[in-house]
């Protein structure tokens, strides 16, 4: 069973995560929508291609809207991270072949502490790698960018592997030594690292494409639907990336 098949084999998981993400984004935008609607009252801005002027005036007169907007953006980042942590155990469990919502929920709860520890180690590893990368190649922007992609994708791959070892192989996952073993696994499997990195990069590219589509289609209905579609694609890419780690872990166990 290869990784792609594992990801394709969990359509409800994908749909569920998509719905959650779309709902969350909609809900987080709702306060901004309500605040702007209240501020506009019955007034109307008739220039759909000259919103910059309107927004500068709106934010100047109602700075709370700018604040609400900032809060919504920060909240989406924080909630995105929290959800990844909260649902990570269930996702790996499902990609490993388990079925059923109760199973999924149980796995989410059961693996939460270990995944939190793994996330913490991952954060630390990223900080260390960022510092080293900047120190070594910080003088060359392009080299630093490429190096950052490599080391951050390594950290992501190691994190995925550590989570898979915990869920699939039953490692405790709390001790730093176990996280280091996952790092060693990732280092010993460069193809896995590259594949995981490519999918991670693709996910970032999709995130960037969402922003590009949103900015080029401000006020156009297609822009939001494109963003939603791309967000679903990003979810699938994430599942595929995690499935790579599950596949690798399952294969090494077998």
């Amino acid at each position: 069973m290869n990784a792609l098949r594992r990801a394709l084999g969990a359509p409800l998981l994908w749909l569920g995560l998509c719905a959650l993400q779309l709902g969350l984004a909609w809900a987080l935008a709702a306060p901004v929508r309500a605040a702007v609607r209240a501020a506009m009252g019955g007034y109307h801005w008739p220039f759909p291609d000259r919103l910059v002027a309107a927004l500068i005036e709106l934010f100047s007169v109602h700075p709370t809207i700018a604040a609400a907007l900032t809060v919504a953006q920060i909240a989406s980042l924080v909630l995105g991270g929290l959800l990844a942590l909260l649902l990570g155990g269930g996702v790996v469990h499902r990609l490993a072949g388990a079925r059923g919502a109760p199973e999924f929920a149980r796995a989410c709860v059961a693996h939460l502490p270990a995944l939190a520890a793994i996330a913490g180690y991952g954060l630390l590893l990223r900080l260390v790698l960022l510092w080293f990368t900047h120190a070594l190649v910080g003088a060359h922007v392009l080299a630093e960018l490429l190096a950052l992609v490599l080391v951050l994708s390594f950290a992501t791959c190691a994190g995925d592997l550590a989570a898979a070892r915990r869920v699939v192989r039953g490692d405790r996952g709390l001790h730093p030594r176990e996280y280091l073993r996952a790092c060693a696994d990732a280092a010993r499997a460069p193809r896995l690292w590259l594949a995981s990195g490519a999918l991670g990069l693709a996910r970032w590219a999709v995130a960037a494409a969402i922003v590009v589509a949103a900015v080029h289609g401000i006020g156009e209905p297609w822009a939001l639907w494109t963003a939603r579609g791309l967000a679903c694609l990003a979810v699938f890419l994430s599942l595929w990336r995690i499935a790579l780690a599950v596949e690798h872990t399952a294969a090494s166990r077998g």
């Binding site: 987080l28 702007v36 919103l51 927004l55 953006q73 589509a213």
Partner: peptide, 20 residues
Amino acid sequence: DGVTQPLADLVEATELAALA
């Protein structure tokens, strides 16, 4: 009103990007 929907859609889209 010409402002609410474009701005809210933009915010929602950028949140989707952040979540992605």
